[in-house]
């Protein structure tokens, strides 16, 4: 009966709403979080920011040092992403339905990719810090592993979705596996794969800042140093430079995407 459906839907909605309300109230009570103070402090934070968080001329003197660190972080992100992309492309060929050796290779690759992808970046950084302590290598590898998992998955889907009738045609001419990969699969999929690579570079430059806070390297660490030593003007300059860099990189990758797709 149609009436039943509406009643049931209303009841489901009510249960859901009450559950969320109970969870929220419970969390607030347990952590003794003051909701009103929480909101008013946002306004205070802005006021404080306006007074202290802008670059002054002392900060500008530090610009070359900041740019050097930023450059280092950007290069590290690009290196980690592109190397990960090469490994991921190789794995994607083993994982995709069209190009895999057999069903087993596909299952193994997909499993591996989802393990790497589902471990958050910060967790990777923490795990790797045990082995490599706080160093640039730790950051590099953390970004590498995360990107590898994500890109393998994205590349597998790219190859699966490209309609690759041409693979059948090339197989029928007697072409070998590598000829088929390089002459049919990659030419069809490369633009989409490059687009994923650019997306990953964007993401990794943002994340590298965070990872740097943990691993004590790069631009993230520079920010941390200035901030903790109350050099707020310098810290604000770091933030501004990061934002500008991210915008520039994003504009660049959008431009490249427009050309290749």
């Amino acid at each position: 009966m149609p009436a039943d459906i509406f009643v049931r839907r209303f009841n489901n909605g009510l249960v859901f709403f009450l559950s969320v309300a109970a969870l929220t109230a419970g969390s607030i009570l347990i952590t003794q979080y003051d909701v009103v103070a929480g909101f008013t402090s946002i306004a205070k934070a802005f006021a404080w920011g306006a007074r202290n968080f802008y670059p002054d001329h002392h900060a500008m003197a530090r610009l070359p040092e900041i740019l050097r660190k930023l450059w280092q972080t950007v290069l590290m992100s690009i290196a980690a992403t592109t190397v990960a992309a090469i490994f991921a492309a190789f794995m994607a060929m083993l994982g995709s339905r069209t190009t895999r050796f057999n069903a087993l290779s596909s299952i193994l690759v997909r499993g591996l990719a989802s393990v790497f992808r589902n471990i958050p970046l910060v967790a990777w950084a923490m795990i790797l810090m045990l082995a490599f302590s706080q160093s640039l290598v730790t950051g590099y590898l953390a970004l590498f592993f995360g990107s590898f998992g994500f890109l393998t998955r994205a590349f597998i889907e790219t190859v699966d979705e490209a309609s690759l009738d041409a693979v059948e045609a090339l197989r029928a001419t007697g072409a070998g596996y590598f000829a088929i990969i390089f002459q049919a699969v990659l030419p069809s999929c490369l633009p989409q794969m490059v687009s994923w690579l650019l997306f990953m570079i964007d993401t990794n430059i943002r994340d590298a800042t965070l990872v740097g806070l943990l691993t004590g390297t790069g631009i993230g660490f520079t920010f941390d140093l200035y901030y903790k030593s109350f050099h707020f003007h310098e810290a604000s300059l770091v933030v501004i430079m990061i934002v500008i860099t991210i915008i520039v990189i994003e504009m660049f990758s959008n431009y490249v995407r427009r050309i290749i797709l």
Partner: peptide, 24 residues
């Protein structure tokens, strides 16, 4: 291979007669 040119697609007919390296 829709993204490739006519002549590239036609040349694919030769791939069966090539070594692995030349084919790739």
């Amino acid at each position: 291979v829709e993204r490739l040119t006519v002549i590239e697609n036609v040349l694919h007919g030769r791939l069966g007669a090539k070594s692995t390296l030349a084919g790739a």
